[in-house]
Design a protein around this nucleic acid. Structure first.
Lengths: 194, 194
DNA sequence: TTTATTTCTTGAACTACTTCATATTTATTG
DNA sequence: CAATAAATATGAAGTAGTTCAAGAAATAAA
């Protein structure tokens, strides 16, 4: 059952008794999402935080010039939301779309608040999630500031080899801050060299 | 007394009884730091999280080509650390330096862990800090992906007018992902227009 | 209050990356 | 398994931002 997957995940960060684990996962609802289906759209408040059981997602914004810019990817055992929309419960600016047929576990904003209030361990869990997320984004910002387009791609390749096959090139390019044409050139030069 | 400033800050996010507030701030130590003094350096583990009572700081990395890249600024009522070093307690990659003579309140890593264990409210406080930090960095990444150098500078100006006067141009340029020469040109073209 | 050091400015040449246009390959659908 | 759409590739021209060098201005030190 998919909820065991979430329990296993949570147990990596806080150790829960059986009844606590049960209480935690029963706050989530399983949802199936088809490829190309949106779970978040601009102007609608993002009311849920989603844990990916199976499948892949991408969050992105559309800039004034019409170009898409990817903020996050998520595959199995990652979380996805428009985090600004979710935590402040104000309208989203991002799209979140399924890249594959997927299964997610969703928790609603108010339910999450109650969980955190009910049990110190749950509060700790969400604190650790946020801290790890923040540390990750610090590394990302710094890497983006300090490295060329090619180095950013190489780094993504070695850090997230399992994402690369499942993510369209144009989406990866926009995550890494370059055009899909330029990433195409990097990839082809690269394979030529080896 | 400077610890009241921290209490006021914390009360914005969680409401503490007098004895709780006292317990919280007594975990911190006041430290004076002179301009150009470092509080964090690469290879040494960042053992403290620092709350700026008065003054200004900058965290930055030095890339392979020798160039400095700024990750964060902090003035009064902001926090600063090499967050990756602090939460994982492994060696820092960043420098953190005082831009002015400053006063900070520092909490040691283990003391923070005990605080969070001791009181659910303290755990909530650090959870909220991390969530707000993460939401902030998401906005930053997206803005960097979607806007030109000039637009990034204009946005910083309007979002953080009080930082601009206190931060050297080369540091701001490296925060915004451009050279100091280019920022100089943006600034001068700008004043010409108006 | 001169001297040294750090920061900012400006010009000119350069380059990493983009844009646009079109062809090719790969995936999706009836 | 055609037919259509979506994603990737490639050339050629363009540009946003960099680099280097040298001078001017501001800040700190003596």
């Amino acid at each position: 059952m998919s909820k065991n997957q979430l329990i296993d995940y949570v147990q990596n960060f806080v150790s829960l008794e059986d009844d606590e684990a049960e209480q935690f996962v029963s706050a989530f609802e399983e949802v199936k999402v088809k490829k190309r289906q949106f779970i978040v759209q601009p102007n609608f408040t993002n009311r849920h935080r989603s844990f990916v059981v199976k499948g892949a997602f991408r969050s992105y914004a559309i800039a004034n010039d019409g170009q898409e810019h990817t903020l996050q990817f998520a595959i199995e055992n990652w979380w996805i939301s428009d985090f600004n929309s979710y935590i402040y419960q104000h309208p989203a600016t991002l799209f979140i779309v399924a890249l594959e047929d997927s299964t997610i576990l969703q928790i609603e904003y108010n339910t999450e608040q109650e969980l955190k209030k009910a049990n110190h361990k749950f509060e700790t869990f969400f604190r650790i999630m946020a801290e790890k997320g923040l540390a990750f984004e610090h590394r990302r910002i710094l890497f983006n500031l300090t490295h060329s387009a090619e180095a950013r791609y190489e780094s993504f390749l070695s850090n997230f080899p399992n994402f690369v096959q499942r993510v369209p090139q144009y989406a990866l390019a926009s995550y890494l801050g370059m055009t899909t044409e330029y990433l195409s050139r990097i990839r082809n030069n690269r394979t030529d060299k080896s």
